[in-house]
């Protein structure tokens, strides 16, 4: 077990090092593709954390993406700050927005919670459409040359010997990769901790969890705020690459929530590797089918339905069921020897 584990860790580090070195090795198209994949991955991991582990099925993730993007644009255009500072502000703004959102949405449960978050996201979209300084319903673009003047771009340009546009690509890619790795590690550590166990207990049966001393509201609120922060950071970073923001694009329920739900469901909701598998499948389908217009969305829909019917725990769930192999297991092994002091837990 330990040998396997060390080998696995070693392989993971090599893969990670390769991913970090990628901008120096691969052409820009690959870096941009991976940036797109990582963006969806971070969004999917955040949604999986909410829906898969905390039982908070949110359909309002686009609110955090949009708030993050708009806060970043405001920081750059209105305050003249560096885009990287803008990204951080975007994350913080999304987390701040999550406080009142949680206050209202947590009064609702299940399907009502889902609709409630969607409503709040739409209110945010309509509100932002009134913000004249950032173009109102028209939207706005990043000022010319913003990406080139971003901090560290010059150093990367010199280091990799590439154009400033490619250096900006590399920088945003590294940041998104780091965000994805940080999300994965943080989720793993959190879910293996006492609080993580409490969280999953709440998801499975809130009353039972309360009876053994878990505070559901506090835990759920904490996860909700952290996921809002992560989603906001991700949205702000993504919009540095898109360079243009409009309320409809930033608060697009299809781009930032529907696809993300699809990815998580396909890959395996409630498992950590699930979103990774899902994003690979989704991206492959997008590359294959995006030029066929509406057929693409029809195929996505059919595949989603098929997985929900025939592999309810997603592709990763099916894989673990059949092989018994589980990377990043969240269960705890029973204590060894003598007396059993605490009940064994296995996550469903």
């Amino acid at each position: 077990m330990t040998i396997n584990r060390n080998l696995g860790l070693g392989l993971a580090f090599v893969a990670l090092a390769l991913l970090y070195a990628l901008p120096a090795l691969a052409p820009r198209a690959v870096v941009q593709d991976l940036f797109g994949i990582l963006t969806l991955l971070v969004l999917a991991m955040n949604w999986n954390m909410l829906a898969g582990f905390a039982g908070l099925v949110s359909v309002g993730q686009q609110a955090f993406v949009g708030i993050g993007a708009y806060a970043m644009f405001a920081a750059i255009i209105l305050l003249g700050l560096d885009p990287l500072v803008g990204v951080l502000i975007g994350g913080v703004a999304a987390a701040v927005f999550a406080v009142p959102m949680a206050f209202f949405a947590f009064r609702l449960n299940g399907a009502y919670f889902a609709i409630g978050t969607w409503v709040v996201a739409d209110i945010a979209r309509l509100g932002i459409s009134q913000w004249k300084a950032l173009g109102g319903g028209t939207g706005t673009s990043l000022p010319k040359g913003t990406a080139k003047e971003m901090a560290f771009v010059d150093q990367i340009k010199a280091m990799l010997d590439v154009s400033s546009a490619a250096a900006a690509d590399a920088l945003t890619y590294w940041l998104m990769l780091s965000l994805a790795v940080a999300m994965l590690v943080a989720s793993y550590v959190f879910l293996r901790s006492r609080m993580g166990l409490g969280l999953q207990a709440i998801r499975d049966n809130e009353n039972a969890a309360r009876s053994v001393g878990v505070d559901p509201v506090r835990l759920k609120a904490l996860v909700f705020l952290l996921c809002a922060f992560g989603t906001g950071l991700c949205g702000a970073l993504a919009f540095i690459q898109i360079t243009r923001v409009t309320p409809d694009a930033a608060f697009s329920v299809i781009d930032w929530t529907a696809f993300v739900i699809f990815i998580t469901v396909i890959g395996g909701i409630g498992t950590l590797p699930g979103p990774i598998i899902g994003v690979v499948v989704f991206y492959a389908l997008q590359r294959l089918l995006a030029d066929y217009g509406t057929i693409y969305l029809i195929v996505l829909g059919c595949l989603g339905i098929a997985v929900m019917l025939f592999a309810r725990r997603g592709l990763w769930g099916m894989f673990t069921d059949r092989t018994g192999i589980d990377l990043l297991p969240l269960g705890h092994r029973p204590p060894q020897g003598g007396r059993v002091t605490s009940p064994t837990r296995r996550t469903a």
Binding site: I76, I77, L78, G135, T138, T140, P143, R244
Partner: peptide
Amino acid sequence: GQQGNPADPASWQAF
């Protein structure tokens, strides 16, 4: 619409 600040004509730049 492609300008950073559409409300401020002084900041508009040609492409």
